[in-house]
């Protein structure tokens, strides 16, 4: 016993090091599975307040850019309304389908912290549980997909950016409907990888890729990017395309969190099947 104690005392520096590293690694691993615990929730309050304060200052620097992008979005939406009105004049005799109404709700939010140069990038937004935000909701901007909510506190949420090794998003070609999956290789924040496209599909540079809508997270037809280049590895049956993201993640300030009102219903069907 005494020798054991003596041994512990002798190596106390190393033992303390091991204990502290163990705590740190527990934090890393728990976080990898997006576990939400009280610690993080409370920490978000402090962190969020500091980031909000910082964003309050730096916001003014980019007002011009933000204004332009919001004006552009406005124009796009006006155009769309115009088109719908034209369409409804021709088809107004059909009854409206009330079932599909409000399947997706959009909650506007401001980005208060963002990064693009890490291998795994995250954003913090100024909306949280109070505003109805839950993990696994999609985040989009006026230019395209942004990420997925992973962690919320009362007033703030962490969003896993598309620029993250853990983000996998299902996409499809707008013109041919063929699917693939989007990932990011960590090199350039403007360029993503679109893989698992069957080799018989005709791809051309400039093809538009949008979300497929087959996941329960992202609504369909949200812009992802355009094909920049494509290749097929030897012995492989799938194309890999590099794509240019439509959104500039370096300059992102206003986003929308998407709530899928049918998500719980859809998930309950899946769990029924698996049982």
């Amino acid at each position: 016993m005494q020798t054991l104690l003596a041994l512990l005392v002798k190596h106390k520096f190393f033992l303390l090091f091991l204990v502290l590293e163990l705590i740190a690694f527990t934090m890393i691993i728990n976080n990898t599975y997006y576990q939400r615990y009280i610690l993080i929730n409370n920490a978000n309050k402090v962190t969020g307040t500091v980031y909000q304060w910082k964003a309050g200052v730096s916001e003014y620097l980019f007002l011009k850019k933000v204004n332009t992008s919001l004006a552009l979005e406005n124009a796009r939406l006006h155009e769309r309304i115009e088109r719908y009105q034209l369409g409804s004049e021709e088809t107004h005799t059909y009854p409206q389908d009330t079932l599909t109404e409000n399947k997706f709700e959009f909650i506007p939010a401001k980005v208060i912290s963002n990064s693009i140069n890490k291998r795994n990038n995250y954003l913090m937004i100024d909306k949280g549980q109070q505003h109805g935000i839950k993990p696994d909701m999609a985040v989009i901007s006026s230019d395209g997909v942004v990420g997925i909510v992973i962690n919320t506190s009362d007033k703030y949420s962490w969003v896993m950016s598309v620029l993250n090794s853990n983000a996998k998003i299902n996409g499809r070609f707008l013109n041919t409907n063929f699917q693939g999956s989007l990932s990011w290789d960590g090199k350039n924040y403007r360029i993503g990888t679109f893989s698992d496209v069957p080799s018989h599909v005709n791809i051309t540079t400039g093809d538009t890729i949008v979300t497929s809508g087959y996941s329960f997270i992202f609504p369909p037809d949200i812009m992802i990017g355009t094909v920049k280049d494509y290749y097929i590895d030897k012995g492989d049956h799938f194309y890999t395309a590099t794509l240019l993201f439509s959104a500039d993640y370096n300059n992102i300030s206003h986003v929308y969190v998407v709530r899928n009102n049918e998500r719980d219903e859809l998930l309950s069907i899946i769990t029924d099947i698996s049982i």
């Binding site: 590293e21 890393i28 976080n31 993080i40 500091v50 992973i150 962690n151 896993m160």
Partner: peptide, 20 residues
């Protein structure tokens, strides 16, 4: 430093290692 990032624990582990 970790409190201010979304990925918890990595700065803690790296800094403890450096301190060691």
């Amino acid at each position: 430093i970790d409190l201010f990032s979304a990925q918890q624990g990595i700065h803690t582990a790296a800094t403890v290692f450096a301190g060691f």
